[in-house]
């Protein structure tokens, strides 16, 4: 990805991120968030993380943001009436954020490994294919095949990792989702019996 595209998507992401914060209308904020996430997904793709990029759009921009919008509408939130701005917290928050950015810049200035560009970390499909372990007779390694064809089998690689190295964690994540589903149902009931 050329730097121009990177800059464009970064700027989109950051500008709409700022809009999330400054918009008075919650609906506008939520929509800005969607756009910001689209930029983020583009950056993911620029990092060869196609699956994560797609999931970002599907889950965040799709499901989560729809949920937010539903809630906003359900609660019938209007644009906030102008309240008196509390000066001290405002200044404090801005200063804290500025210090955080300054710290970030100073750290990144001295972070030598971070100076390498994408060209210096190329993806080498041939080497990756060679490094794959042999499979039993009669089975075929689709990942290896894709790599030989000079394609990045992103989802397959991720899935392989997920189901071979982290199956337990996956189960836990599943349980967590189940628990949160049940929890939401209970919380949303009108009266707790």
């Amino acid at each position: 990805m050329p730097p121009v595209a990177f800059i464009i998507f970064s700027v989109i992401m950051l500008v709409f991120g700022v809009l999330v914060v400054v918009n008075r209308n919650p609906v506008a904020s939520a929509l800005s968030l969607v756009v910001s996430f689209l930029g983020l997904a583009a950056l993911f793709v620029s990092l060869d993380a196609y699956f994560v990029g797609v999931v970002q759009i599907l889950v965040y921009a799709g499901a989560v943001m729809v949920l937010f919008l539903f809630i906003i509408m359900l609660l019938d939130l209007k644009a906030e009436a102008r309240r008196k701005i509390n000066v001290v917290p405002m200044i404090g928050g801005c200063v804290l954020t500025a210090v955080l950015v300054l710290q970030l810049v100073s750290v990144l200035n001295t972070f030598e490994p971070g100076k390498k560009s994408l060209v210096e970390a190329p993806l080498d499909y041939a080497a990756a294919a060679a490094a794959r372990p042999a499979v039993p007779e009669g089975k075929s390694d689709t990942i290896k095949r894709d790599l030989r064809e000079n394609k990045l089998p992103d989802v397959r690689l991720l899935g392989e990792q997920l189901f071979t190295k982290f199956p337990f964690h996956l189960q836990i994540a599943g349980v967590l989702l189940l628990v949160s589903t049940v929890g939401v149902v209970i919380l949303s009931k009108r009266e707790l019996k």
Binding site: P89, G92, G93, L96, V99, L100, Q103
Partner: peptide
């Protein structure tokens, strides 16, 4: 705010 300050 305090939380962020601590992180900084």
């Amino acid at each position: 705010f305090v939380f962020g300050l601590g992180i900084l």
